[in-house]
């Protein structure tokens, strides 16, 4: 159990997908202009990350692995299957959200389909495989990774909103500053690297 909490804390803060690995930067930079939209995208990412990670784990172990249904090593199909699963699940989540909570659907808007090509999602799944997590660990990694990414984008969006009031050289306005900020935040997050998650037991 402590192991699972460990992975959760580690993936949310220390091994932050956005600020330590810099994954999902395309949407990270494009959508972090206001806190509200950033929060919307963040929630959507948590959603999708938490669902796709365990599903991809199951697929990898029971379909593609040597011990799976086909009894042979099909791991070379991993990329194709993972990305298709993600795309399909994103569409499914979109449909379910639309049915269950139209207000949430409206606030998430175009972000949901965008998530398919967010590297943080596929990256998370690939990291999970390379770290050889078991099922429970992958659930916790998915949830933690998603929450970490959401926190990061909301934090950056907050800073960028404030930045609107400062005098930035015209050539650096917008994108240039966003890069500098993300870099600085990344450095700040490196300070968390020394934390030993075992201390949270």
């Amino acid at each position: 159990m402590s192991d699972i909490i460990n992975i959760f804390i580690k993936s949310a803060f220390i091994e932050n997908l956005a600020l330590s690995y810099f994954l999902g930067m395309c949407s990270f930079l494009a959508v972090s202009k206001s806190v509200k939209t950033a929060l919307g995208l963040g929630i959507a990412v948590v959603f999708v990350q938490a669902i796709t990670m365990p599903v991809n784990w199951l697929i990898d172990h029971y379909l593609l692995g040597e011990g799976g249904v086909f009894g042979m090593d099909l791991t070379f199909l991993r990329f194709i299957i993972f990305i298709s699963t993600i795309a399909a699940l994103v569409q499914l989540v979109e449909m379910v959200v639309e049915k269950v909570s139209p207000s949430l659907y409206n606030s998430l808007g175009i972000f949901l389909p965008l998530i398919t090509v967010n590297c943080a999602i596929l990256g998370g799944s690939l990291f999970m495989i390379s770290k050889e997590y078991n099922f429970a660990q992958s659930v916790s990694f998915g949830l933690g990774g998603g929450i970490g990414w959401a926190l990061a984008i909301v934090a950056i969006a907050g800073i960028r909103e404030k930045l609107a009031y400062s005098h930035v050289p015209p050539a650096l306005r917008g994108l240039g500053m966003a890069f500098f900020l993300t870099g600085l935040m990344g450095m700040a997050f490196m300070g968390l690297m020394g934390i030993d998650p075992a201390a949270f037991k």
Binding site: S20, Y21, F22, P169, P170, A171, L172, L175, G176, M177, F179, F180, T182, G183, L184, G186, M187, M190
Partner: peptide
Amino acid sequence: ILSPAAMFIIAIIIWVQRS
């Protein structure tokens, strides 16, 4: 070598290009 440096370098390239 650390990854934030890449962010700074891209930012500087953008800066130069846009100026």
